[in-house]
């Protein structure tokens, strides 16, 4: 899929939370594109800023959080500066949203059919009868059995998995170009997770909808995404094709993260572990945010924040891959895969 101009462009996005101790930068200079029909996975641990990036794009940052700088461009139109009302219209038409808890996205007082038809009627000029037909069609499409009967039921009459299907139907009502899905499978049982992932993939393929899939679950990413952005402490550590990132992680953080995931069939007495934990927003070190935990840390990592350097098909924010470095690319990759420490002793903080 080669695209002239990407569907969504995020440029140097910064999300801040003003507090009485100064502004906390929760998303710090994040840039990425999503092409039409592409699934971009955004993965990271809690507090990495992945959900906030998604919320900034759909214009639903919870106050006092705000986009402090940067641009969000959807189909060539800048949307981060729009008013709430304008953004609401875009959310209905061009961007759909799926959240973790299907219960909070559905109004418990209205039947599923009413919520679907109202959304359709608000954003298109269909007749009510047509809209109802469309709603039934959508429910069929997301795999809800007997949609003619279930359309008049209320959210509490659906099981968790079925509810999430309804939410997906709701997000797809008016054929959005982009769906932002924030942890869509986290609240579901494993067998239902697989069903929902399969459904998302199918819809993406059939409608050409792009999906920004925010999750902490590498497994979901591996199953679904085309490309993946790995976030750490509000920044993108690594972004690239999913296969590259998972099988061939280049950033030391991604590498450690992948090693720490237990897998069936991998017999190891101990899992690889990254020492320490992600810094709090109040305590992000200067230079590379990962420097306190990195095995390959150099003096420079404590001074300068690494740029997103192009490495093969990916972009990696790590000084190991700087062309000014004495190391060649192969050496750098080997270094990350090995457990040897860098030139500077690891800072014990």
């Amino acid at each position: 899929m080669t695209m002239a101009s990407p569907l969504l462009q995020v440029r140097n996005l910064v999300v801040e939370f003003p507090t009485r101790r100064g502004a906390l930068t929760a998303v710090d200079d994040v840039s990425f594109d999503i092409a039409e029909g592409e699934v971009l996975g955004v993965v990271g641990e809690s507090g990495a800023g992945k959900s906030l990036t998604g919320a900034a794009i759909i214009g639903l940052l919870e106050p006092p959080g705000r986009v402090a700088s940067g641009e969000i461009i959807l189909e060539g139109r800048r949307i981060d500066t729009l008013s709430y009302e304008q953004m609401r219209r875009i959310r209905g038409k061009q961007i759909g949203a799926i959240f973790q808890d299907p219960l909070t996205s559905l109004n418990p007082l209205y039947s599923v059919g009413r919520q679907l038809t109202e959304t359709i009627l608000t954003h298109t000029d269909m007749t009510p009868t047509k809209a109802r037909d469309r709603a039934i069609e959508l429910l069929t499409e997301v795999g809800i059995p007997a949609p003619e009967r279930r359309i008049d039921q209320y959210p509490h009459q659906f099981s968790g998995g079925m509810r999430q299907r309804v939410v997906i139907a709701l997000a797809l009502c008016v054929n959005p170009r982009l769906v932002v899905a924030d942890e869509p499978t986290t609240a579901l049982d494993v067998s239902i997770q697989a069903q929902i992932i399969a459904l998302l993939k199918k819809l993406c393929r059939e409608h050409g909808t792009a999906i920004m899939l925010v999750t902490h679950d590498m497994g979901v990413i591996a199953e679904t995404a085309d490309r993946v952005a790995v976030m750490y402490a509000g920044r993108i550590a690594e972004i690239g094709p999913v296969r590259e990132v998972i099988k061939n992680a280049k950033h030391p953080y991604t590498h450690g993260l992948m090693g720490s995931i237990p897998a069936v069939g991998h017999d190891a007495e101990r899992l690889e572990q990254i020492p320490g934990s992600m810094p709090r927003l109040t305590d992000i070190p200067t230079g590379c945010a990962f420097n306190r935990r990195c095995l390959h840390v150099h003096e420079r990592c404590f001074k300068d924040r690494p740029d997103a350097l192009p490495v093969e098909d990916s972009r990696v924010a790590c000084w190991l891959y700087d062309s000014a470095n004495a190391m060649s690319l192969d050496e750098a990759k080997r270094a990350v895969a090995s457990k040897e420490t860098g030139s500077v002793e690891q800072a014990n903080v």
Binding site: F17, T19, L24, A26, S46, G49, S51, L52, G65, L281
Partner: peptide
């Protein structure tokens, strides 16, 4: 903890 709640400790 969900991301969205992170910055309001």
């Amino acid at each position: 903890m969900a991301d969205a709640r992170m910055p309001t400790p």
